[in-house]
Amino acid sequence: MYRLVFTQVLARFDAEAVHHLTVRALRLLALLPLLKRLIHRALAPRDPALRVKAFGVHFPGPLGLAAGFDKDAGCAEALAAFGFGFVEVGTITAHGQPGNARPRLFRLIRDRAIVNRMGFNNAGAQAAAARLRRPRGLPVVVGVNIGKTKVVPEAEAVADYAACAKELAPLADYLVVNVSSPNTPGLRDLQAVDMLRPLLTEVKHVAAATTRRTPLLVKIAPDLADEDIDAIADLALELELDGIIATNTTIARPAGVRTTAATRAGGLSGRPLKARSLRVLRRLRARVGDRITLVSVGGVEDVDDVWERLLAGASLVQGYTGMIYGGPLWASRIHRALARRVRRHGLKSIEEIIGRTAT
Rank of each mutant, 00 (worst) to 15 (best):
R341Q: 01
I244C: 13
A113H: 01
V89L: 13
R104E: 09
G327D: 02
V218D: 07
R340H: 06
V87C: 15
A94D: 11
D160S: 05
L34I: 09
Q126S: 13
A261Y: 12
I39R: 01
D14G: 13
A246P: 04
G270M: 13
L316R: 03
I245Q: 12
I114W: 00
V52K: 06
P182R: 09
R285Y: 13
A209P: 02
R24L: 08
S180K: 14
G327N: 02
Q318N: 09
A165N: 11
M118Y: 13
P33V: 04
V342A: 00
Y161M: 08
R276P: 08
A113I: 01
L175Y: 06
L347F: 02
H95W: 05
M195P: 02
L50F: 01
P60R: 13
H19W: 00
A15M: 15
G90Y: 01
H58T: 09
E202K: 10
I92A: 02
A11N: 14
V342I: 15
A17V: 09
E154I: 15
L175H: 06
E167N: 03
V144E: 00
L294T: 03
A169K: 10
G256V: 01
L196F: 11
L190E: 01
R51W: 04
G186H: 11
L338C: 05
G90M: 01
K53M: 03
T293G: 07
A101P: 14
V23Y: 12
V142G: 09
A225I: 00
V23I: 14
A233L: 11
F13E: 13
G266P: 02
V193M: 04
L32K: 07
R291W: 07
A128E: 11
A128I: 15
L38R: 15
H335Q: 05
L175Q: 06
R279W: 08
R46W: 12
R291M: 06
P170Y: 08
N116F: 11
F106C: 02
Y174H: 12
T259V: 04
S296V: 06
A80N: 07
A155V: 15
L216R: 07
V9C: 08
R110G: 07
D226N: 15
R341K: 10
A255E: 15
T22C: 15
F86E: 03
V193S: 04
A314S: 07
L196R: 09
T210S: 12
V151H: 03
E351H: 01
R291V: 04
T293L: 10
T321E: 03
V280T: 15
P222I: 06
V144W: 03
A236D: 10
V306A: 04
A261D: 13
L187F: 09
I109N: 07
P62A: 11
